[in-house]
Write a protein that binds this DNA or RNA. Sequence first.
DNA 1: AAACGAGGCGCC
DNA 2: AAAGGGCGCCTCGTTT
Length: 569
Amino acid sequence: MSPPGVTIAACRSGWWWTARAGACSRPSPTTARPPGRWSGWTSLPPRWWSASGPSGPAGCGRPPPRPIRPSCEPAPAWRCHDLALTEGILLAYAGRWGEPKSLHAAWARLHGLPVPDDDLPQVPRYQPALFEPERSGLPEGEGLVAVLGEVYADQQRRLAVAEHPERLRLLVAAESAGALAAVEMAEAGLPWRLDVHDQLLTGLLGPRPAPGTLPRQLRELAVRIGEAFGEPVNPDSPGQVVRAFAAAGITVPSTRMQVLREVDHPAVPLLFEYKELSRLFSAYGWSWLDSWVRAGRMRPEYVPGGVVSGRWATRGGGALQIPRAVRQAVVAEPDWTLVVADAGQLEPRVLAALSGDRGLERAARGGDLYGGLAAAAFGGDRPRAKVALLAAIYGQTSGEAGQLLGVLRRRFPEAVGYVEAAARAGEEGQLVRSRLGRTCPPPSTGWRERTAALGRAAEDDEEVRAARRSARDRGRFTRNFVVQASAADWALALLAALRLRLDSSRPAAPELVFFQHDEVVVHCQPADAVEVVAAVAEAADEARRLVFGGTPVRFPLDSAVVSCYADAK
DNA sequence: AAACGAGGCGCC
DNA sequence: AAAGGGCGCCTCGTTT
């Protein structure tokens, strides 16, 4: 029996989860879709719920095809509820970080029974079918739907007693809708031109090498590096490189690019070139293509909620770290196009909205926040304004940034005060939350033991210095957390609002193909591009209104209609 | 042989 | 005076 007012929603992507439970270590390519699994209804994991329509799979009882839903269609709540992700949000909210959050764990906690671990190795990570439990452990005769209903009702009770129930409910809705979008996006895949990628690699590295060997260009660079040092050196070994520099009479603390940039030695430019190409080859080279690109699409494994701040992570493929050069290979299919939209200066705008600082809000009303900031307080010096604001958000205090932060504090006391309060809370071991209530992890017991030294005698010994360092580290983390996690709140709301506007029931409908923290890519027919651009802008404004209420801060999007991702910026 | 941490880079 | 947040993934070099 379903909870009152709750119906099951399904989407066509369910097969993907089915594949996960089997032998596949990553999403199957479209061509390898398991036969008989393509029913949508039976293969969807039971974590997804719909609180009110749409009451069936895509295409059922929908209005006539339109690329974009009418903007007047109300979308106050997103119609799914992911029990496990919600459990994680609620546990974190209560300071109970890391406790198992699976359906069974939540149910067992509710009944005071032994709580199963989230990561039992021998069981599938996801439920194999809609009404099958994800793993054994439910008592005999206990219907899964009844269990779902119980846990759902319990979560609703816990949401209701939060400090801002409406915000936390919105977070849960956005998180759940995001999880749905993640599966759809993984199913769709990012259009990827194998031939373009191969040409890029061949042009920079030489022909594809035999397995286990380096491409020609890397081999030659390694030889030239050895010649520059007068002895063979493995450029991949920081230890060898440091020793080689020492032999040449140059002492370097490490082989970081920032360090080597200051070094005058013929090997340095060669090392830079080697590092760049080596990374391209090893992380995004031919074997990456073999693993992640099939049938013209790159299919990452998104992990919604994979980052403590609420950002997504990916499992394998490095889909959220694709180097700019490689984006040349992301090309729309023939007679299609890409709409690439990214939120400019998102985190500073989020800080303006969070803090309600009048001055920063004023700067954030325009299209160029840093420009506005520079005009207001930095004599028009935009780079300095940017450094100052980023220092506030990231907790940088050294060098010029520290000085500029002082200027910022005098002119924008509420904005700087907001992040500094979060930093103090973190240093004291307290929890901080995003706008919608996403909560940072509590400090470890080791941290508490280390920082306990601060309460005792203030001798400036090693123990006290270590304690101060630990406290400051956590302060920087919580300072950044409130901004980064609130930006993730907004981005998730944007994604959910946009997904609702894209009508996937129509043939050749626009498809969401990529989401990266503050950026979305929609693959669509050129005739739909204008509407898609408008839909993203509407979604961004809806996210602003939902997450930040009546803030005057704008969240403008830089949108581009391009055939190649690399042309977007 | 496999597991791990460190050093390092690139994405946001 | 002052070590900028989050992640994934590569390689090396050591430990198990």
